[in-house]
Simulated assay, not measured.
Amino acid sequence: MAITKSHPGINVSVTSQGKLLPEYDNDEEETSPQTITKYIEAQSGAEFAIQIELQKPFPVHSVKFRLYLDGRSVCSRIVSEAQYAKAKSRVKRTIGSVTSIVAEGRCMIQKFCFSDLSIDDSHDQPVGDRLIDDLKTMGEITLKAYYIDGLKDVLSKPSGSESSKKKILDAGVIPEKALKGRALSHQAGLSAPVNMPYSASGHHTDFKYVDPNKQPFAVVTFKYRSKEALRSLLVIPRSPSPVPLEDRDTSTLTLDESRELLRPKSERDEVTRGIKEEVVQQKSNADKLGTIKRAAEDDDEISFVSSKRRQPRTTFNKHGIETIDLT
């Protein structure tokens, strides 16, 4: 769980398929007692949710949690002081979907999910300022916590809305040059909508922020990437080199591996040496071809000079004076 140093009683995590996603430290991110950033692995199409847990001693005020996906405010949850009083040792909240009121008596629910980024490497698409700004927070789940008080229920009349669809950013096709080498792989999406009866009481909670500047007292960020992207960032280790057959447990070997192990080691070493030599030779050939190609590109005209140079003709006149013909 991600926990800020200044508020150890508030734990935040991301779940997917009913399990907590492993978290990895982000050593390059600047942190403070009020903020923390972790990396998590995103699997294409997998649904996810944000789990919040408040433990005793509870905060001194009610808390509003606002969720941002890829930089856009999506929804919020409130944990009140009255709920602290009812809890024995902890209060849990889960945010995993958005709700759109289609009409009175009916609503539509969609769960959060990881979606693949569509990246175009043709270099033909223009890169706008809006896209550059969107990419700054792409691949991030951020939860901000605010102290609030003066809570009271206010009667409100629900109205038809599809605004939750617009809250999720759809980046569309992204030119590869816009990424500028950043290891982005996914964006937040929504699952297929499910129609459910709308049973809200017609009330919403009114409140005021304790901080006059409406600043959060804690911020937790999860940067989600594919496993390949996490490896390229050295957040998780790369795949280890294969263990030699003779060092492995024989019960784990396949039939082909067992047969290979029975071959004399000298023969196996010879095969391995042959493969290595072939790879080295291929690399050498490629290097030579690259050198010839660069030389041809650098010279507009290639001249060939004979290795045997013509010797100058020498004669002597009647006085014995030597004459050299340089023509």
Rank of each mutant, 00 (worst) to 15 (best):
G202Y: 04
D124R: 15
V194M: 08
P212T: 10
D124E: 10
K166T: 07
D129M: 02
E162F: 14
V154H: 06
E140K: 14
K152N: 08
D121L: 10
E162R: 13
P158K: 15
L131A: 04
A178W: 01
S161I: 00
A183Y: 06
K157A: 14
G181S: 02
S164H: 06
S163A: 15
K166G: 02
V194K: 08
T142H: 01
K180N: 05
I168H: 05
D149K: 11
N195Y: 13
Y198Q: 15
A145Y: 11
K152C: 08
A145K: 10
G139V: 06
I148P: 07
I168C: 05
E162L: 15
V127W: 12
F207S: 08
D211K: 06
D134V: 04
K208V: 13
D116V: 07
Y198D: 11
D153M: 15
D116T: 12
H203A: 05
V194Y: 06
D134F: 15
D129V: 01
D170R: 14
M196H: 09
S156W: 07
G202I: 05
L155P: 12
G189P: 12
H204I: 13
H123P: 00
D133E: 10
L131I: 02
Y147N: 12
Y198K: 09
S159N: 14
P126H: 01
L131N: 02
G189D: 08
T137A: 13
